[in-house]
């Protein structure tokens, strides 16, 4: 796991929202072919950190290297073009658009007719239908239906299916198993491991240290905007890591008071 250079390297990252210090001097490396669990309580800064990695937030201070190169411009478009796919919790789908249109939003397949680029509906439909069937969406849901019609779990399935389907180098999953049934949960976790085995970097965000300990090669724990632990799952048990989270919470409380 300690090959030449990490795929994503975060160095001394700080992020402020106004006067709120959301990320404090965070440094962390992520390698290709690795499944990293990013764990912490609500407000620990997990989602904020990955929103930097996927280009939504620009850091206030510090550096991010992707594949050895310093990232100078932050925009989701650039991240997606580099092969960083993110399954976000609250954003990512437009309710007013069909599943097929959401699936390809921002990277629409095109068919040129007399030089003018038109959407390739055939491909959009067939690919997104394949994915929604693979993820067991209701039989009466079609790729032309608006996302508004879907349940929470189905929405999540569309996002995950989309992330898996494109050729990526990094897949970031923010609480991917929320809203999912037990069976769907297992499916998602299997997918995460499969992606890793294909050589991708998978960053898996969750509250549940026991769940992610089973999947991950390494666990990074965040608390109050800081990284407080970064350990391989071979070196620490889930119980030990859980203790770190508890201690970390207490430490921060003490520091704050």
């Amino acid at each position: 796991m300690s090959d030449a250079h990490p795929l994503i390297q975060v160095k001394n990252l700080d992020l402020y929202f106004g006067s709120f210090h959301a990320l404090k001097d965070v440094s962390v490396d992520f390698h290709a072919g690795e499944l990293v669990g990013l764990v912490g309580d609500n407000g620990a800064g997990k989602t904020t950190l990955i929103r930097v990695l996927c280009g939504i937030h620009k850091p206030s201070k510090g550096e991010v290297y992707f594949d050895g190169e310093l990232v100078t411009e932050f925009h989701p478009k650039l991240a997606i073009d580099q092969g960083i796919e993110t399954i976000q919790q609250s954003v990512g789908l437009c309710d007013n658009l069909s599943i097929a249109r959401n699936f390809y939003l921002g990277r629409e397949p095109m068919k040129k007719i007399v030089g003018i680029p038109f959407l390739d509906f055939k491909q959009m439909r067939s690919m997104s239908t394949k994915v929604i069937r693979a993820f067991g969406l209701r039989d009466n849901v079609s790729a032309d239906d608006e996302v508004e019609r879907l349940s929470g779990g189905e929405r999540q399935s569309v996002k995950i299916g989309r992330a898996v389907e494109f050729k990526n180098r990094v897949v970031i999953m923010d609480e991917p198993t929320n809203h999912l049934s037990v069976r769907e949960r297992e499916h998602v976790n299997e997918l995460a491991v499969q992606l890793k085995e294909q050589g991708l970097l998978v960053i898996y965000i969750t509250h549940d240290i026991f769940q992610v300990h089973k999947l991950a090669d390494r666990v990074v724990i965040m608390e109050n905007g800081e990284k407080i632990e970064d350990a391989s799952t071979d070196s620490m048990t889930a119980e030990q890591l859980e203790e770190v989270i508890r201690q970390g919470g207490r430490l921060v409380e003490k520091m704050g008071s």
Binding site: I56, I80, V91, L97, G106
Partner: peptide, 12 residues
């Protein structure tokens, strides 16, 4: 529909 979601998908 959702400018946040569109932004997260790389739409300018």
């Amino acid at each position: 529909g959702s400018s946040e979601s569109a932004h997260s998908r790389g739409i300018r």
